[in-house]
Measured scan of single mutants.
Amino acid sequence: NNDALSPAIRRLLAEWNLDASAIKGTGVGGRLTREDVEKHLAKA
């Protein structure tokens, strides 16, 4: 759900053309954090 994404995370996902549903969020309530996105990018 994009409503739970911060503007910074939305921008990062758009910049790298990533799908938020493909990344497991570790923040409060399962929210994506910058670290989650960076770890996903490191694996790719």
Rank of each mutant, 00 (worst) to 15 (best):
V37F: 03
A4V: 12
N17Q: 09
G25I: 04
R34G: 05
L32N: 00
A14H: 09
G29V: 03
T33N: 03
N1W: 12
D3N: 10
A42M: 10
S6A: 08
T26N: 04
D3G: 10
L41G: 03
L32A: 02
H40K: 03
A42L: 13
A20L: 08
D3W: 03
A44K: 11
R34Q: 11
A8M: 07
A20R: 05
N17V: 04
K39E: 11
L18R: 01
R10E: 14
R10M: 13
P7R: 08
D19G: 04
G27Q: 02
N17S: 10
K24Q: 13
K24T: 13
G27P: 02
T33M: 05
P7H: 11
E38M: 14
R34N: 06
A20Y: 06
E35T: 09
E35H: 09
L41K: 05
N2T: 13
G30V: 02
L13S: 00
T33R: 06
R11P: 05
R11V: 14
L32P: 04
G25R: 06
V28K: 12
A8D: 15
A8F: 09
A42W: 08
L13R: 00
D36W: 03
A8G: 08
R31N: 08
A14S: 07
L18G: 04
A14P: 00
L13M: 05
A4S: 11
E15M: 15
E15S: 08
P7Y: 06
G27E: 02
D36N: 02
K24F: 10
I9G: 00
V28A: 13
N1E: 13
R11N: 15
V28G: 06
I9D: 03
R11Q: 15
N1V: 14
K43W: 12
A44Y: 15
T26E: 02
E38S: 06
A22G: 06
I9K: 00
A42V: 08
L13Y: 01
L13W: 02
E15H: 11
V37H: 00
H40N: 03
G30S: 04
D36P: 00
L32K: 01
K43L: 15
H40S: 04
D19T: 09
L13D: 00
K39N: 14
K39F: 09
G30Y: 01
L18Y: 03
A44W: 14
R11F: 13
K39H: 10
D36M: 02
K43P: 06
G29L: 06
L5C: 09
T26F: 03
D19H: 09
G27L: 03
I23P: 00
A4I: 13
I9W: 04
I23T: 01
H40R: 02
A42R: 11
E38D: 06
G29Y: 04
R31M: 13
A8S: 09
A44F: 15
A22H: 09
A44E: 12
D3F: 04
N1D: 14
N17A: 08
G30L: 02
D3S: 11
A20W: 07
